[in-house]
Simulated scan of single mutants.
Amino acid sequence: MTLLAHERYCDEIAHQVGLLRSVVTSGADLSATVPTCPDWSLEQLVRHTGGALRWVELLVRTRAQENVAEEQVPSHGGPEAQGDPAALDAWLAETGEAVVAALREAGPDTRVWGWAGGGDARFWARRMTHEITVHRADAALTAGLSYDVAPEVAADALDEWLYLVGWVQRNLPHRASDELRAEEHRGRSIHLHATDAPPGLDAEWLVELTEQGIAWDRGHEKATVALRGPLTSVLLAFYHRLPLDSPELEVVGERELLEFWLAKTSFG
């Protein structure tokens, strides 16, 4: 699995923070429920995302070798004022500048505590890139705004999602991951096919269900079920952000397997 360059992740975090700020200042209703995260309002989603970035900034800046509680992170929860887009925007701007600066200064190989096998600043640069990329989709959908993402970032987000699902299966077993390993599903597979990938970008994946957990790689192979569509749409569908019956998506084969996968996969 080839990762993007550390500086590319840093650039993308800065870019995505800017785009998320534009949602905050667009006149969107901050109290609106996020359709894809219905337990949150738009403001709560933004505070969650900014809080995650601030937590990582502290981890990286202090070279933490163990987890740090959220309560130890300065301004983790955001500005005191509720429903104030200007205050939320200023907090988010400061947050983005701080985390990107910390990641750039550390460089990719600096040792930092991490989960899912991560133990360096590179892990956190990648994780935060996709944390904010996907939550920015949540924000854009809530505000009724358009959403897109650079193809190489979308492809890497799918790689990371599959890596994390596999890591959870191997290291944090629970009922859902056990069901994915169940005997009746072994040997079945899922193919993801982006129909608009630019030249030179391999944007097809094969995910196989095995006794040991999922196995996956990029490439074109026949599978039990295939999900086809624009890369951004495939990403959002696989991240549970876009319904499978969306007009831009096509499901070929055993749809039930894809629905089962989506119901059982998570970070934990």
Results as ranks from 00 to 15, higher is better:
Pro108Thr: 07
Asp109Tyr: 06
Arg111Ala: 15
Arg111Glu: 13
Gly114Arg: 09
Trp115Asn: 12
Ala116Ser: 12
Gly119Pro: 03
Gly119His: 14
Asp120Cys: 09
Arg122Pro: 00
Met128Thr: 02
Thr129Tyr: 08
His130Ile: 07
Ile132Asp: 02
Val134Leu: 13
Thr142Gly: 07
Ala143Ser: 12
Ala143Phe: 12
Leu145Asp: 04
Leu145Lys: 13
Asp148Ile: 02
Val153Arg: 01
Ala154Tyr: 02
Ala155Tyr: 04
Leu162Arg: 04
Leu162Cys: 09
Leu164Tyr: 11
Val165Gly: 06
Asn171Cys: 00
Ser177Leu: 02
Ser177Lys: 01
Asp178Pro: 01
Glu179Phe: 01
Leu180Gly: 03
Arg181Ala: 14
Glu183Thr: 06
Glu184Met: 06
Glu184Asp: 14
His185Gln: 07
His185Lys: 08
His185Leu: 15
Ile190Glu: 04
His193Lys: 13
Thr195Leu: 08
Thr195Met: 07
Ala197Trp: 01
Pro198Leu: 03
Gly200Asn: 13
Asp202Tyr: 01
Trp205Met: 08
Leu206Glu: 11
Leu206Asn: 09
Val207Ala: 11
Glu208Gly: 07
Gly213Leu: 08
Trp216Pro: 13
Arg218His: 10
Gly219Leu: 07
Glu221Ile: 00
Ala223Asp: 03
Ala223Val: 02
Thr224Trp: 03
Val225Ala: 09
Ala226Cys: 12
Leu227Glu: 10
Arg228Phe: 01
